[in-house]
Design a protein around this nucleic acid. Structure first.
Length: 635
RNA sequence: GCCACCAUAGCUCAGUAGGUAGAGCACCUCACUUGUAAUGAGGCUGUCGCGGGUUCGAUUCCUGCUGGUGGCUCCA
């Protein structure tokens, strides 16, 4: 007689063999309708699972994150079932739920087409209409191997062998799949779904393995949720930085120049200029000094730094300079190290913080290039900090705080933070790694930040903190990074003279706050949907006379704005004011000044704000004051 | 790099069952002199991504390449 404790603290005894679904039957109502699985003693189980011991139960709501995961997971099974019906020889790999929906990796004899997706959707609907229950079975390894070998499911067989423990399977009608579960009670629970795309994916994520076809889909209990999802994707596409970059004339990438090489147009370059200006000011305030280094260096430098050992596949091929091989820089660090070495450093000199907007070039495989987010030539807002062991904690803390502040000034408050720890291949001692990792961790905790640990994801030369920002379609892009380096100080043999008169090895931190200006600009465009805050807007004010009669007055206003350091543009075309407003609105100019006869007579300006509309008339001096305030506050 | 898809005017797109192409916006000119998201009329705009093949003839069919898109792998 298991005693089951409910979330409200109530404890009830049930007879042996009771299932969560029995309890739901008894409770009924909304809970029964909305629950798709149960968590018993922390473990998720099917509603048809057996409660055989005492424990705490909690029902999983269909619309909770876990509920949707189960929903999508079961949807993936239904999709696989449908594919199996259409392609009896299809073999299946993995089909998990993801952040937005689900996918299944399949091995089908021919390439799937969009028409196939339509067909698969139809068959899925049939399976759903049949409302077959998902039935769990637990098998021994041997039984499972026999079953899946019979089905010629080679990937499943491989997976069973890899697991090495008795697996569970789920049957649903004639379809059987290796799966941990839990699942929805039956296929009929899946109401509204859509298959979204087909892509290639390597078996087990290894590019040496064969490529499977990955079919992505999404499903929801309610039609409105599916509609909203599709609409959200459509809306997101409108603020894609590649679309806005073209529409707002910010940048372009040109085939004649080469893929992954960015042309910053005047408006984009202006925004970049403001970003850099802000960046420089903040760095000076934070105790950094600037350095500037060349774009190429002798091959030998890259040999010394280790880049030729671990980074060659990302470096552009060498060039010949007076019969000496040179390489274009993929990183700035070796240069900074060479500056360090030009003089003997005392412990009193540390910490040294050297920053550079350093433009680097990396060969990125063609398939990975993506607008401004992933390019082949980019400018890092790089800095290297050389410090003593006793300064490490403090430096890490400072960088974290500095970094978050920098992101905040561009409106990024919601970011994902990762701590990447020691990978399999590493240089340096375990003690050093542990100490450095501890320092990074301490820094994060002192700032009371939420972060995830990425075990083994550190660079071979040291642990790191990464901050990622999501683009408009929910794809994560790494921007900020703070890395400890045990490799290069060693290779370049940099030292400082300690209080004891001996030479010591300083600790080196690499850090980039925005990461690269290109990527950062990309996420920034999407973040603001192209409507940049006043301080960044390339054109801050559109001045528009209503008729030619007000042109002279409008011109004096435009000139006054320019004199006051406001970026003004005068639209004196002989067009209706509605036309000019539309134009300025489309260009997302923050402010419009409309100048008609009334304004001329009263010596006023009529203010209109982007997306907000008419703000009424004010004195020009007041308007300028207001703008200056807004610019200073960077809102 | 791998899998799939795509490439027509500056942009968004239509089109040709194979006979060298069109619309809207943008741009230019003229008229209108206008009050908070599109005034009207006229004009300009193309190696139909590049190369090869099939064909009397290719933007259209086949093929190679280049570039892009969505993923995978890899990374700021």
């Amino acid at each position: 007689m298991p005693a089951i404790k409910f979330p409200d603290g109530q404890v009830k005894k049930y007879k042996n063999g009771t299932k969560p679904s029995d309890i739901l039957e008894e409770i009924g109502g909304r809970l029964k309708k909305q629950s798709v699985a149960a968590r018993v003693n922390g473990r998720l189980i099917d509603l048809s699972g057996i409660l055989d011991q005492d424990g705490e139960i909690q029902f999983i709501d269909i619309n909770s994150p876990e509920g949707l995961d189960i929903y999508w997971h079961s949807s993936a099974h239904i999709m696989a079932h449908a594919i199996k019906k259409i392609f009896p020889n299809a073999k299946f790999a993995f089909g998990p739920p993801v952040e937005q929906g689900f996918y299944y990796d399949v091995d089908v004899e021919r390439s799937l087409t969009p028409e196939d997706l339509v067909k698969i959707e139809e068959v899925m609907q049939e399976i759903i209409t049949k409302d077959e229950p998902f039935v769990r079975e637990e098998l021994s390894v041997e039984e499972a191997l026999v079953l899946f070998k019979d089905l010629n499911e080679t990937y499943k067989v491989e997976q069973i062998e890899r697991l090495g423990e008795p697996p569970s399977i789920y049957r649903e009608g004639s379809f059987v799949d290796l799966c941990r579960g839990p699942h929805l009670p039956s296929t009929g629970y899946v109401k509204y779904f859509k298959l979204l795309s087909i892509a290639g994916a390597y078996w087990l994520g290894d590019e040496k393995n064969p490529m499977l076809q990955r079919v992505y889909g999404i499903s929801f209990p309610k039609k409105s949720q599916l509609d909203e999802y599709i609409q959200r994707i459509e809306e997101a596409k409108k603020r894609d930085h590649r679309k806005l970059g073209r529409e707002l004339d910010l940048y372009s990438i040109n085939d004649d120049i080469g893929p992954g090489l960015v042309l910053w147009h005047p408006k984009g370059a202006y925004i970049r200029h403001k970003i850099e200006e802000h960046w420089r000011n903040e760095h000076l305030k934070s105790g950094y000094e600037f350095v500037t280094t060349p774009h190429i260096a002798r091959k030998e430098l890259w040999n010394k730094s280790g880049h030729l050992d671990f980074f060659t596949e990302n470096m552009f091929s060498e060039m010949d300079v007076d019969e000496q091989p040179y390489l274009v820089k993929p990183m700035n660090c070796p240069f900074h190290l060479q500056i360090y070495k030009t003089s003997t450093k005392s412990y009193r000199d540390l910490p040294i913080r050297w920053a550079e907007l350093g433009t680097v070039y990396r060969y990125e495989r063609s398939g990975v290039l993506h607008g401004l987010m992933r390019v082949r030539g980019f400018t890092q807002d790089d800095a290297h900090i050389f410090c003593r062991q006793d300064q490490l904690d403090d430096e890490v803390s400072r960088v974290i705080g500095f970094c978050l502040n920098m992101l905040k000034s561009f409106g990024f408050e919601d970011v994902d933070i990762y701590l990447s720890t020691r990978p399999e291949n590493y240089v340096g001692t375990i003690e050093n790694w542990d100490r450095a990792t501890e320092a990074l961790k301490l820094g994060l905790e002192k700032a009371s930040l939420n972060y995830q640990v990425d075990p083994g994801e550190g660079v071979f030369y040291g642990p790191k903190i990464d901050i990622k920002i999501k683009d408009v379609l929910g794809r994560s892009w790494q921007c900020s990074t703070i890395q400890v380096d045990f490799n290069e100080p060693e290779r370049f043999d940099i030292t400082y003279v300690g209080q004891d008169g001996d030479k010591h090895r300083p600790i080196m931190l690499h850090r980039a706050l925005m990461g690269s200006l290109e990527r950062f600009f990309g996420v920034l465009i999407e973040h603001y949907a192209g409507a940049f805050p006043l301080w960044l807007a390339p054109v801050q004010v559109h001045v528009m006379p209503i008729t030619d009669k007000q042109r002279d007055f409008a011109l004096t206003i435009h000139q006054e704005l320019i004199r006051s350091d406001i970026r003004s543009y005068i639209d004196d075309r002989s067009e209706k004011v509605g036309f000019k407003i539309r134009d300025a609105e489309t260009k997302k100019t923050p402010y419009m000044l409309i100048i008609g006869q009334k304004e001329v007579e009263n010596n006023m300006v009529s203010v209109r704000k982007h997306r907000e509309g008419d703000k009424g008339s004010v004195q020009l001096t007041d308007f300028i004051e207001q703008l200056k305030k807004e610019i200073a506050e960077k809102v």
